[in-house]
């Protein structure tokens, strides 16, 4: 029984299609992460500025994306905005946009947290030797913040990759969506095929996410070793 189930993966082009779906997933996640992380760093730096209005607006942006579930955001951008404003993007672009904005929001908080946890005397010493604000961030704060924020950032990256499994809800042909097609098409012939299809999807996500989370753990350990001698 179990033996016949695994064959569902090797029928026709099934396995190639699953990898095709995985590629769509990875592509969307990668583009969204690059855009989101860059925007997030900029927003995070801005959130440490003294202007109250600016901080309030960015805080609102963060809370908006952090509180609203990703599914709702996807529906909002895919079905509701086009109806209201006539902006009509293909599903893959909507997905990339939503994930980039979400990543940026979360990242801005990570960066802000890292910047304000750089010891205060560092900032004050920088100001005392007459650095401009730009120089202060460029040479003093950001380099020290990077190592503080790295583990949290990698954690965010793995979360974003995992959450791409929601994309099937807005008709993106990601790996989960292709998996369901394969399961339903072969239900009669391979009743146990569902186990193998989701099994291989599990392995795919694991292979992508686990090295990242391992790396994050290692970085954090190293940082602590450095900090505590």
């Amino acid at each position: 029984m179990a033996h016949s189930g695994i064959n569902v993966l090797f029928e026709g082009r099934n396995l190639i299609r699953l990898f095709g779906g995985l590629w769509t997933t990875v592509e969307i996640a990668a583009v969204a992460l690059v855009l989101g992380l860059i925007l997030g760093v900029v927003l995070g730096v801005l959130r440490t500025f003294p202007s109250r209005l600016l901080r309030f607006v960015l805080r609102l942006y963060l809370e908006f994306f952090r509180i609203i579930p990703t599914v709702v955001l996807l529906f909002l951008f895919y079905y509701i905005l086009p109806k209201q404003m006539g902006v009509n993007l293909p599903a893959n672009q909507v997905a990339t946009l939503v994930f980039a904005l979400w990543t940026a929001a979360e990242m801005s908080d990570i960066v802000r947290g890292a910047l304000i946890s750089v010891p205060k005397h560092q900032r004050e010493s920088g100001m005392a030797i007459g650095l401009s604000r730009w120089q202060l961030y460029r040479y003093v704060l950001i380099p020290q913040a990077v190592s503080l924020e790295l583990p949290a950032t990698i954690n965010l990256v793995t979360r974003v990759i995992k959450t791409t499994s929601l994309l099937m809800l807005i008709s993106v042909m990601d790996v989960i969506n292709v998996g369901q097609q394969v399961v339903e098409a072969n239900n009669q012939k391979y009743p146990t095929g569902v186990f193998w299809v989701y099994g291989i999807i599990f392995v795919m996500y694991f292979v992508i996410d686990y090295p990242l989370s391992w790396w994050a753990k290692r970085m954090d350990k190293k940082r602590l070793e450095r900090a505590n001698g």
Binding site: L43, V57, Y61
Partner: peptide
């Protein structure tokens, strides 16, 4: 330099709030 930074911040802030308001409308 400082002035330029502030201006940039304001611009980004306005853009972000605009996006918020628009999506709120939706």
């Amino acid at each position: 330099k400082k002035f330029g930074f502030k201006k940039l911040g304001l611009f980004l802030g306005i853009a972000a709030s605009l996006a918020l308001v628009l999506s709120g409308c939706g």
